[in-house]
Design a protein around this nucleic acid. Structure first.
Lengths: 223, 223
DNA sequence: TATATATATGAACTATAATTCATTTTTTGC
DNA sequence: GCAAAAAATGAATTATAGTTCATATATATA
């Protein structure tokens, strides 16, 4: 007998693994999964490319692990709110606002998680991520319907609508420019909330606007 | 002088070009842009791979052309309805229902246009496609607000919500299974319409449900 | 310190799919 | 039919990025 893995070594191995995952996550946060090339990850983690393969069997597995870690954080935040106190309606509102606000703040990462073109392995992880969103939304909708807070609906379809509306309005070609979101991100989130809450039947319909002002052409809105 | 391009040849060239585009489009309709590999396109079009490059400078350009042709058809259908007769609210409803119904029927192509992972060149085309949707929706919303049909909103954000909600609820991991859509696609479209029209403030809020029935646990819905 | 084993290295290899180009075939006008 | 130009061919090349592996280095016991 001449070698055995000591605790010191085990700790260093775990440390290297963490360094690799951190390097990969930072690259993803900067430039999406497309930027997480193995040579770049190795460089950033301060190891050789071959070393990566002593810790992860393939690039796909490494990226999946990064995806899981990042998305788990988000899902836990939302699930925590959903399970918390308050009426279903209040919790739904809180979940949606949190989802949207966090996506605005971490736009690049949100883009990677939700919208960036990725290959099949990551698409699977993304599908799980989005399904979890759907389940959280659908659960609250069901509760709310049972409690009589919302009108009865197909909660799966409605949840999918919400899960599509929020990211699309914040990320990608239909979203405001990034610098606009820096300034008026909160207003955009408010608008999205209005749409989604009205969509599930939660909001009172606003008072109708009158016909456009004859002089200015601007619609006059009454409180 | 010994050669000049006759009309016969020009016609044959145009014909080959069309064959290539058709072959590519069919492959996309069957398996998405991922299935449109140059060797496959050539095989299906009945030409050599090198021939493709006599008609298109690169795979990217060929795929872009396919994307443009397919998406133009869809955009024209929606734009036609938007410019047609009727109140803004009626036209909006018709545009949304048409968008959703066509996506259900041509799911695979809709997936390729809206959701399939694609590289940057096609992502640009897709961005244009989605922006056009956004503009059509936003234009109708503006009209409707001016006419007093809907409450005032940020029409761009609202349009983006709609443009995200519809495909997400019909395509991808949050959508019903394909075989389900075959049976009850119309119901799903109805649900999506309800969500979106309520979202823009068009629907009267439904009458509230009562508390769940004590015996069955089922919420009772009153007309 | 010697030996065995584990771990790390990074240049070389590989797989995939787009692209090229020397060659062949087709077309046209004389 | 022949020469000139265009068009088509498809095997070979190229580009990219992931993966391997022979070699070197580090670690643990006797």
């Amino acid at each position: 007998m001449a070698y055995r893995r000591t605790d010191t070594v085990a700790a260093r191995l775990a440390d290297t693994r963490r360094h690799i995952l951190n390097a990969a996550r930072e690259l993803v946060a900067e430039g999406g999964f497309a930027a997480a090339q193995m040579t770049e990850v190795a460089r950033k983690a301060g190891v050789a490319t071959g070393t990566l393969y002593r810790y992860f069997p393939s690039k796909e597995e490494l990226c999946r692990q990064v995806f899981r870690e990042v998305s788990a954080r988000e899902m836990n935040v939302l699930a925590g709110i959903a399970q918390g106190p308050g009426t279903a309606a209040k919790r739904l509102e809180s979940v949606l606002r949190t989802f949207a606000s966090r996506a605005v703040r971490g736009r690049r990462l949100a883009f990677a998680l939700l919208a960036e073109p990725v290959d099949v392995g990551l698409a699977e992880e993304r599908a799980r991520f989005r399904r979890t969103h759907g389940e959280i939304f659908a659960g609250l909708l069901e509760e709310g319907i049972a409690a009589g807070d919302f009108p009865a609906r197909d909660v799966k379809v409605t949840a999918a609508c919400i899960a599509g509306a929020i990211p699309t309005a914040l990320i990608g070609p239909l979203a405001p420019e990034s610098h606009e979101l820096d300034e008026k991100g909160d207003k955009v989130v408010d608008e999205i909330m209005t749409f989604c809450l009205a969509g599930v039947g939660l909001l009172q319909p606003r008072i109708k606007v009158k016909a456009p002002d004859a002089r200015t052409g601007e619609p006059r809105i009454r409180a």
